[in-house]
Simulated scan of single mutants.
Amino acid sequence: MFDVTIIKKWLLEHEAEKRAYDGFWFNFKNYKKEDPLEFNTFFPNFDLNLLEIKINSVAINFSNNYPELDYNHIIITIPIIYKRKDIGYYKLLFNFDGSVDDDYFVMH
């Protein structure tokens, strides 16, 4: 049986929740600055009060490397809800040592 308290402890030790939200806001601000036309397409008349972000999943991923299992992540996903519409998500991929491997926005 898998002991989920190990993951909870890991998340706390590596401040994963805080780092996920910090990463979201860093990327969000860059997106707004670097691609204002696309930003305005997804966030027309942007109002921060209409933006909802909340971590909805934490996953352990062993990707495309069975049986080696040498490319693994803990992934935090934050849906991006604007004006009550699901318009995308932000993912942060941690290596098991707590370092960040990658992060990205996906808008749909």
Rank of each mutant, 00 (worst) to 15 (best):
I78F: 04
E52I: 07
E34D: 15
K33H: 08
N49P: 00
I74K: 09
F42W: 15
P44Q: 08
K8P: 00
I74M: 08
A20I: 02
F46A: 02
Y90G: 03
D22K: 12
L50R: 14
I78Y: 06
L48E: 15
E68Q: 11
N49H: 03
N64D: 15
E68N: 12
I78L: 13
I74L: 14
D97W: 07
I80N: 01
W25G: 02
L51W: 07
L69R: 10
Y104L: 08
H14S: 00
I76F: 09
P67W: 05
G88N: 07
D86M: 10
F46E: 04
K91N: 14
G88F: 05
H108L: 06
F62S: 12
E52G: 01
Y90C: 02
G88T: 06
L37W: 07
D97A: 05
M107T: 03
D22W: 04
N45T: 07
I78V: 15
N65S: 14
D70G: 08
E38S: 13
G23P: 02
F94C: 05
R84N: 15
D101I: 01
V4A: 12
D86P: 00
A59W: 00
K83Q: 15
F28E: 04
Y104I: 03
L11C: 09
G23K: 03
F62T: 11
G23E: 02
R84T: 10
N95F: 13
P67R: 05
L69N: 14
D3F: 08
S99Y: 02
L37K: 15
V4H: 10
N95E: 14
E15C: 00
Y66K: 11
L69Q: 09
F28R: 05
F24N: 05
P67T: 05
H14L: 00
D70V: 01
A16T: 05
I60P: 00
I55L: 13
L12V: 11
I80G: 01
L50M: 11
K29F: 12
G98M: 03
N49S: 09
K85F: 04
E52L: 07
F26S: 13
P67A: 04
N27M: 15
A16H: 03
E13V: 01
K8S: 11
W25C: 00
F105V: 01
N45F: 10
R84E: 14
K32F: 05
K54H: 06
F43H: 03
K18R: 14
T77D: 06
F46R: 02
Y31H: 09
K8F: 09
I60W: 01
T5Q: 12
K29P: 00
L51D: 05
K29I: 09
K54A: 08
L69D: 08
K8T: 08
W25Y: 15
D103N: 14
D101E: 15
H108N: 10
A20G: 07
E68R: 09
A59T: 12
L93V: 01
M1A: 12
D70H: 07
